[in-house]
Write a protein that binds this DNA or RNA. Structure first.
Lengths: 192, 192
DNA sequence: AACAGATAATTTACCCGTAAAGCATGGGCG
DNA sequence: CGCCCATGCTTTACGGGTAAATTATCTGTT
């Protein structure tokens, strides 16, 4: 949850005429970091840092903030992801499928399922044909939980993004979608 | 490291004529997830998901991939962030400052410093005036390590982003910068 | 039928990060 | 001075994640 590109500069107060704590007027923290790197290594191409650093930093901030509505429901983000996967697919999923859906290891899914089962949010049944596989589904309580949280979650996300106007958000979503498509298609191959 | 918006749909093979595993031709995985949500909850405003989900997912993928050059040097991303903070600021930093720079807790910094000190990459000296504070600086080996990794790291990042052309990257960086500026300015206040 | 090897899920051991408590020190303020 | 609280860092306890080993089951081959 970090970036090659770190956060706020502490030793650069002399650069920021205003106060040094309110971005928005001048650049974000990644911009400051990039400036520092360029000062130290003038030859470097810092272009990628400006994208990747910002994505990482945004993700870190968003995740911190984004989880607020979830915590009220006593769920971690990972748990909600699992429940959400079941809810949005609309049918049962096996643990392996859940691992794929939530991009986590099978072991993590096993642990979460244990917890969520104990809390009565999901149920499991064994496959009749293949006794290795399990099928997991939401209980009614689980579905109500997801459906109860989701609107608040989306409203919260909307609020968090309210600093950008609609066309900007659309543009951003489109560009991120393009990048993500590329990454998902090509990243496994890049394991250099 | 996750998203409200999960990853690949498993149960939607009937929707995807091709194979269901290669994005790139059709949308990214977040798009598929959003479609699922909309099918289940038609009234929902999925706009924010398209941005936030993609940011989270991109961050997750990038971090996995991005760390490859680092691992070759036997460094974790967090360790490199710490070293990088020292390198780019160009002067000593105290543990608290490092915590701010790397957005991690003081405890985490303490642990990393212990490791990095043992490996001879950083040194510490106590402040003469205030014996509570420590000053940390890179050793020559530490600086060489950072300078050795950085070009490879940036080259790798460039390769990872090569799917987008230059104007797109610029646009993306600008939009992310704007978003990040907003988030950094306003997120602390949004702790609702 | 019986074995080899694949596959699904779980268990185990461990790493890493945080939050909270703890320790040492410093800077007022009576 | 001596007390009190703030500050900087470290330690402790714990939760959550992964990789690798483990168990159980299935499938294909002969």
């Amino acid at each position: 949850m970090t970036a090659t590109e770190g956060p706020r500069a502490r030793g650069d107060e002399e650069l920021s005429p205003g106060d040094g704590n309110s971005p928005g007027r001048r650049g974000d923290t990644v911009a400051a970091v990039v400036r520092q790197w360029r000062a130290v290594h003038p030859g470097l191409d810092t272009g990628p840092m400006e994208v990747i650093g910002r994505i990482n930093r945004c993700a870190a901030l968003l995740q911190q903030a984004e989880d607020a509505p979830l915590r009220r429901a006593g769920l971690s983000r990972a748990e909600f992801d699992l429940l959400g996967a079941l809810r949005r697919t609309g049918h049962e999923l096996t643990p392996s499928e859940l691992a794929r859906e939530t991009f986590s290891s099978g072991a993590a899914v096993t642990k979460r399922l244990k917890q969520l089962t104990e809390r009565g949010l999901v149920e499991r049944r064994g496959d009749t044909r293949d006794r290795r596989v399990a099928h997991v589904r939401l209980t009614d309580a689980g579905r109500d939980t997801v459906d109860g949280i989701l609107p608040a979650q989306l409203a919260y996300e909307t609020a968090v993004l309210s600093g950008l106007d609609s066309p900007e958000l659309g543009e951003l979503a489109a560009l991120l979608g393009e990048l993500l498509g590329q990454l998902e298609g090509r990243l496994g191959a890049l394991r250099a």
